[in-house]
């Protein structure tokens, strides 16, 4: 699914210093690490944010060179980033935006566009799962949404776009326990044995609800330790200092 080899990236200074990571179809990987370790940079580099410069290494998504693609091509190839800070876009209607996104991806995949009726049926079934009422569809994208609503909107978009690989960038930050469970439920409903997830988080809490197959610890732009889900519990107990001293 995703193969990252020796990835180096910088934004005015080096942040990622040689990331190696392979995620197989159906696997859920978690990346944990302290502030400033490069977790969000990794998410953003994978999604194609232009401010970051990739200085070395390669990334393949389903065997294709991810780094040479535009952000919209990455989305069409099945990559989805749930943003840490979803952007408010006044004046752009949520439903109109989602329909454009779904049909743009369908077009790039040579599928016929969904018509208005099919689209509305689809979205109505999805918003129920995520606990939104229909009024959310008529609001501007994320405008005036609470922190929890923004994160749920990310998961709604994920459910609509059905990516092959979803990256959740600190989706748990700023969520109360109810919103966290709602988000986890949405994510878990998409676990089908083929779709892969990369869950970036500070805390172990989210991983109680979205149980990972592999946990990686990232410090200073490198993955310094990988293990099973029990590694997250160990980190929660001992903190990152335990590993930082012995990279």
């Amino acid at each position: 699914m995703l193969a990252i080899k020796n990835l180096h990236a910088s934004i005015s200074q080096p942040i990622l210093r040689g990331i190696n990571l392979t995620i197989n179809p159906g696997e859920v990987h978690a990346i944990m690490g302290p502030n400033g370790s490069g977790k969000s940079t990794l998410s953003n580099v994978l999604a194609g944010r232009e401010e970051y410069q990739v200085t070395d290494g390669e990334v393949q998504l389903n065997g294709k060179d991810l780094l040479s693609m535009q952000p919209e091509e990455r989305a069409a190839q099945g990559l989805f980033l749930a943003f840490q800070y979803p952007v408010e876009i006044p004046g752009v209607n949520n439903m109109y935006f989602l329909k454009a996104a779904v049909n743009s991806i369908r077009k790039q995949r040579n599928l016929s566009p969904l018509d208005a009726v099919d689209f509305i049926q689809l979205i109505k079934s999805k918003i129920k799962e995520i606990g939104f009422d229909e009024s959310f569809l008529h609001r501007a994208v994320n405008e005036g949404f609470s922190g929890g609503e923004k994160k749920r909107n990310e998961v709604l978009q994920m459910m609509m776009l059905e990516p092959h690989l979803a990256i959740l960038d600190e989706t748990d930050s700023g969520l109360d326990i109810d919103a966290l469970q709602m988000v986890a439920k949405g994510v878990n409903s998409l676990r089908d044995g083929k779709r892969s997830f990369l869950v970036v988080t500070h805390y172990q809490r989210l991983l109680n609800y979205i149980v990972p197959d592999v946990v990686h610890v990232m410090v200073q732009g490198k993955i310094i330790k990988s293990g099973g889900k029990e590694l997250a519990l160990e980190l929660e107990e001992k903190g990152y200092g335990w590993l930082e001293g012995n990279p």
Partner: peptide
């Protein structure tokens, strides 16, 4: 930021 957000959802530039 808004431009990147839209593009990350598959909408061309």
């Amino acid at each position: 930021e808004a431009l990147f957000y839209l593009r990350s959802r598959g909408i061309d530039e």
